[in-house]
């Protein structure tokens, strides 16, 4: 077992509520990672009373059940998913496509354009329907505040991203097993990945609104002028942001949770 403090041992200031942050892999940049066999709360370093819900990976039902159990009168921040767009579309699909976006005006005219609702549906199939279920359960548990935190913007530089995944032995082994030549692997155009991410953020915002919660979009200072994740916030893999990004976002989350 790690050095995580069990919930009973935490000495909480008398602020009248518990503040808890939970989520998938993108929460790690904000609170650091602890692996626990069972869902466990600990005070996040550098905060006075924000508790991170650690637990097993992948996040199983028991993890989210634990969050619901602690939700009564709590202020909760969730960093849900954030890789739905990468999991489905990081590499170009069987056919090239673009789609219209309210946030990014660039659109390729020489390829197929698909409906936003098609992608929205894929995102829900890729895990967002579970978020919707979780939010309903959390709402029923009567928390003081529910905050859904935006997830890191995509990284723009496809060449640099290529060097990252080509240095990933497990991924290359997987490609080889599928008889796929890495040279044939094409990364989706940056502006399309950016649109996909914006759509994902819109969905997260809609879900927050649906249950009377708050959506906390990523801070503008983490994005470049086009909306991509700024270089100084890249982690060393294809999809994640680094602890510097996490520190900024954590302060932002704490501020939101502590608002009267």
């Amino acid at each position: 077992m790690s050095d995580a403090v069990s919930q009973e041992e935490i000495v909480r200031p008398s602020i009248g509520y518990r503040a808890i942050i939970a989520g998938h892999s993108h929460v790690n940049a904000m609170v650091g990672w602890r692996h626990e066999l069972a869902p466990t709360l600990r005070i996040v370093d550098g905060t006075s009373h924000l508790e991170a819900l650690d637990g097993p990976w992948p996040r199983l039902e028991e993890y989210w059940k634990a969050l619901v159990q602690h939700a009564d009168n709590a202020r909760i921040a969730i960093v849900w998913g954030g890789n739905e767009h990468n999991a489905r579309y990081f590499f170009r699909d069987a056919y090239d496509f673009d789609f219209s976006s309210k946030h990014v005006t660039k659109i390729l005219n020489n390829i197929q354009i698909i409906a936003r609702s098609t992608i929205r549906k894929r995102f829900y199939e890729g895990g967002l329907s579970d978020l919707a279920d979780l939010l309903d359960q959390l709402k029923a548990a009567r928390p003081q505040r529910l905050v859904i935190v935006g997830t890191p913007p995509p990284k723009k530089d496809n060449d640099r991203l290529r060097t990252m995944f080509e240095a990933e032995p497990h991924f290359l082994a997987y490609a080889e097993a599928k008889k796929i030549d890495p040279a044939d692997i094409r990364i989706t155009e940056p502006h399309i990945r950016l649109k996909l991410w914006y759509l994902l953020q819109d969905i997260l915002a809609d879900e927050a609104k649906r249950i009377g919660g708050i959506f906390l979009p990523v801070l503008k200072e983490t994005q470049d002028e086009d909306g991509y994740l700024r270089d100084e916030f890249w982690a060393s893999d294809v999809t994640h942001a680094n602890p510097a990004y996490g520190r900024l976002m954590l302060d932002y989350v704490v501020e939101e949770l502590e608002k009267p």
């Binding site: 892999s25 890789n83 999991a87 590499f91 069987a94 990933e168 893999d237 294809v238 999809t239």
Partner: peptide, 14 residues
């Protein structure tokens, strides 16, 4: 197969 690769990459990274 591109879809499979995307899924594998993000699963791995997570």
């Amino acid at each position: 197969w591109q879809k499979l690769l995307s899924e594998e990459l993000t699963r791995r990274e997570c």
